[in-house]
Amino acid sequence: MTSLPKEPPKKKLGLVIDLDICVGCHACAVNCKEWNSGGHSAPMTDTDPYGADPTGVWFNRIHSFEVENEETGGRTVNFPKSCLHCDDAPCVTVCPTGASYKREEDGIVLVNADHCIGCKLCSWACPYGAREYDEDAGVMKKCTLCVDKIYNPNLPEESRVPACVSTCPVGARSFGDLGDPDSDVSRLVASRGGYDLMPEQECRPTNKYLPPRPKKQGGEGQTAPELMPVSDSSAGVIARWVDRFLSA
């Protein structure tokens, strides 16, 4: 039913995204589109694909931000975003038809395209902009956490991973059970201070972001000792070498 599972799912599958190493290459976004083009929510319709106003269905998009700080200088942060598979998913509770639901087995939030009336309300309810309306099909679509890939016995083991995760060239994306504190992903989150986006929206997202690490920048934390010239003048440096290396 459209209400959230009575018991929050124990298993919470989700993604962990490492902002420290994401280079903003869009690989995850495009590979996601590719997988899903023939997947559970196929097609990932594109309108005006070769024209003036190309737009289409994407489950994952890459933003990049400049973070300015007078003291420490600025930094650029690349920021991929897809559905966060929230525990308290408002996109599920607002859905009038029950098409939007959260799976009890693993916490994945999905849309049942056969029941969706395309009212778009869930897209209004999601604070993160993670829902994708397919105008052509008249239904809402969204990141499926590659539910048709991760359990799929038709694929070899190493492919049973969300498309965006296995494709990420820098390895900025991890996938696993965030409900299990002992899982690899949970440990990663714990060790790196993984955080929620917009906690104030109280959606309790499953996906976590790992913050950029402090920069080894400027003089801060510098361990390298200053270089000490061996002589005041260049001639002196060479003279020193002549002295040192020539026995005669």
């Binding site: 083009s37 023939g38 359990y151 296995s166």
Partner: peptide, 24 residues
Amino acid sequence: ILRYGADLKGEESSLAPVAMKDWI
């Protein structure tokens, strides 16, 4: 308009789903 893949959706297979695994 492009609806690539609409006809590529897979048939359900008779194989039982498998366990997913962590991927770091």
